[in-house]
Design a protein around this nucleic acid. Structure first.
Length: 674
DNA sequence: GCAGGTAGTGTTTTT
DNA sequence: CACTACCTGC
């Protein structure tokens, strides 16, 4: 056991070694792409537990995505046996906030079973508060409020400081939005971090309690922290600064949601004894890929100077393929994948390939192309499982059981499936609730409200309430899986799906629901939780855990944002066009630097080969749009790229020159077959 | 009260 | 093109 740990530590480079062993004070690790960042964090956790005698329950590693957290858990699990990791926290900022809030709910004026609203629900609330304003307005307002929350600005402060009428108006909206949330006993994603910060700032007892509990903090992707998350990190680690923050300013791609890479510099300011270690050796990509990446990112101003280098060979040229349109682009990429797979034989798998794009909508064409060639693929990011209508329907019931004051959940549940409770009834309930200052659920339970309803609309509502009451009493005792199963049978949800949906869509949806039930049942057994306790965790999930098997041999498709932290032997960066990538809005707003970092992230996902594509024209909102190749292509060293498909030069399918004879033979074979 | 049709419009990225 | 929001007719 110990030997194996020492053995793995032996092939650390000096910087990695130091980063893992340094415990004298606050530490910032500037880790370039592919420099072994995750390894440093995981091995540091192991080091803390096995060598430095930290009890696991006093260590927390914080990531930004569930995926990253899961991966880290897995890797620690490989190095340490289960009992030694008991109590160890590896989770996202948001789930840490949730756990905190669940425990300190009372101090925050919430009940334990508060609801967590996703952005769609939050958007609906804002849209209602705004009245008849357009969609764009709602979107802007929601975004603004989120930014304010993330900068720890209260509605009062915003209103006080407002200099123009718009800010003032949105400030008012912010205030009433927050009131609405509290009356629903609900929080949004931002609150999960904001409220703990406020509690830690104002309540010394809570602060001491948590600072004692968490003695060492490891923060992944520190450049992505916003002001609020940074504050949380500082409050939890206290003046001692017992933390290791890992980050890379060149990979900061979340400024649009309030992330502030200046936090890396702030760290230096706030902790004068901050130790900085740079990891610059890359263990992932060919020298050429790194040269291209370095060259592109050199166009950005630097927070910390850093140049990635590699011991690997120069490697293949970077292909840049000009395509006619998006279908052509998809065909080319997919046939290249098919071809490389064929040429590579057993050594090459579908899982070695990734198609990365700027926006989710770009995935469609590639999906079709892959499907038509029978190539298995996995879509990461995009519409989350929990965003599907049928899943949200079921979860509305779950949420409502946990927190009856959750009006958005009430509205959804009471109207799906349709049960004769419609607009007028809900309007009456709503009026009553407003006057009585209570939730819709309370209103529906109150006799005073019911007498105002006509008998024929009262009946279904009362039935619904009776059913809810029944399930509420059973919720804490009955197993989550069977409880939900019964509930869905009672509301005839399967029949509802099959009737409402065209063709096979209903069956698929019901399958999704059954997946969800299975997952909830399993989850509740594993962690011995009842349905009420599961209700909260679900809001923070993005993917069905355990469902995606890493080993499955599938081509990966992902947005550039979602690809951060991952690596693939062969990467296709598609849609490299002005207006698409960099995105037109970013160009307009002057956020080119962030787009360039996104390009840097994309390039550095690749291990062996990198292929960029761009289209001459693409269909958008029904009509054709013309695009120039991305400016980022011009920023790459000319000697490293090979331009294909421009001005009649036929795009070559074969990749590596080394086996050109074999390759061309295979290519011929391939074209004959297809 | 609800379903189905029509007209209008457009989110880049995620917890 | 595809999705949604609104409107109308049952």
């Amino acid at each position: 056991m110990l030997e194996s740990i020492i053995k793995t530590m032996l092939n650390l480079n000096p910087q990695q070694h130091e980063a893992i062993h340094y415990l004298a004070g606050p530490l910032l690790v500037l880790a370039g792409a592919g420099s072994g960042k995750t390894r440093v964090i995981t091995e540091k956790i192991v080091y803390l537990i096995t060598q430095a005698n930290y009890p696991p329950q006093q260590i927390a590693a914080i990531t930004f995505t569930n995926k990253a957290a899961r991966e880290m858990q897995e890797r620690v699990g490989h190095l340490l046996r289960k009992p030694r990791t008991r109590g160890l926290t590896i989770c996202t900022f948001h789930s840490l906030g949730m756990r905190f809030l669940r425990e300190e709910a009372a101090a925050a004026g919430y009940k334990k079973q508060f609801s967590i609203l996703d952005s769609a629900d939050a958007g609906k609330i804002i849209s209602e508060l705004l009245g008849s304003s357009g969609r764009e307005m709602v979107f802007k307002a929601q975004h603004q409020i989120s930014l304010w929350k993330n900068s720890l600005l209260t509605p009062e402060a915003v209103i006080r400081q407002a200099e123009d009428p718009w800010t003032h108006q949105i400030g008012q909206l912010y205030a009433s939005y927050q009131d609405t949330l509290t009356s629903y006993q609900a929080v949004d994603f931002d609150d999960l971090i904001r409220i703990p910060v406020e509690l830690l700032q104002t309540d010394a007892d809570i602060r001491y309690k948590w600072q004692l509990r968490l003695r060492y903090l490891l923060v992944d992707e520190c450049q992505d922290t916003n002001t609020c998350q940074y504050a949380l990190m500082r409050l939890l680690t206290g003046a001692e600064g017992k933390f290791t923050a890992v980050g890379d300013d060149d990979q900061s791609i979340y400024a649009w949601r309030g992330a502030n890479m200046e936090n890396l510099r702030l760290l230096q300011q706030d902790y004068p004894d901050l130790k900085i270690i740079k990891l610059e050796q890359n263990y992932r990509s060919t020298a050429r890929i790194l040269r291209v990446a370095n060259q592109v990112i050199a166009h950005n101003p630097k927070l910390f100077a850093k140049t990635l280098w590699s011991e690997y060979a120069l490697g293949d040229m970077i292909d840049v393929i000009a395509c006619k349109n998006e279908t052509h682009e998809a065909d080319l990429v997919v046939s290249r994948i098919a071809h490389q797979k064929l040429v590579g034989g057993d050594a090459v798998h579908y899982r070695d390939f990734a198609i990365l794009y700027r926006g989710n909508h770009q995935a469609r064409v590639f999906e079709e192309a892959l499907r038509s060639r029978r190539i298995p693929y996995r879509l990461s990011g995009g519409q989350s499982f929990f965003d599907k209508a049928e899943i949200k329907d079921v979860l509305a019931y779950v949420r409502l059981l946990a927190n009856p004051d959750d009006d958005p959940a009430f509205l959804r549940a009471v109207t799906t499936p349709r049960r004769g409770v419609g607009e007028t009834t809900l309007a009456k309930l709503n009026n009553y609730a407003k006057v009585a200052q209570c939730s819709l659920f309370e209103a529906a339970r109150s006799m005073d409200a019911l007498v105002e309803l006509s008998p024929k609309s009262r009946e279904p509502l009362m039935q619904f309430m009776a059913m809810l009451a029944d399930y509420q009493t059973r919720a804490t005792t009955e197993a989550a899986g069977s409880l939900l199963h019964n509930l869905l049978a009672d509301i005839a949800y399967e029949a509802h799906l099959l009737n409402t949906e065209e063709g096979r869509a209903g069956e698929i949806k019901w399958c999704n629901v059954r997946d969800l039930l299975g997952w909830i049942g399993q989850k509740s057994e594993e962690d011995d939780k009842n349905i009420l306790e599961i209700a909260q965790t679900i809001a923070l999930m993005t993917l069905l855990e355990g469902k995606e098997d890493e080993d499955a041999d599938m081509v990966s498709m992902s947005t550039l944002h979602a690809s951060k932290g991952l690596e693939y032997p062969h990467v296709f960066l598609v849609g490299c066009e002005e207006g698409v990538f960099p995105h037109a809005d970013s160009v307009e707003e002057g956020n080119i630097d962030e787009e360039r970092r996104l390009m840097y992230v994309g390039i550095t996902r690749a291990r062996q080969t990198l292929t960029l594509t761009h289209c001459h024209k693409r269909k958008r909102a029904g009509s054709w749009e013309f695009h120039e190749p991305s400016r980022f292509i011009d920023e790459m060293p000319a000697e490293d790229i090979r331009l294909l498909g421009r001005k009649g030069s036929e795009p070559i399918v074969s990749q590596s020159e080394g086996k050109s004879i074999l390759a061309s033979m295979m290519a011929r074979l391939d074209s004959l077959q297809s």
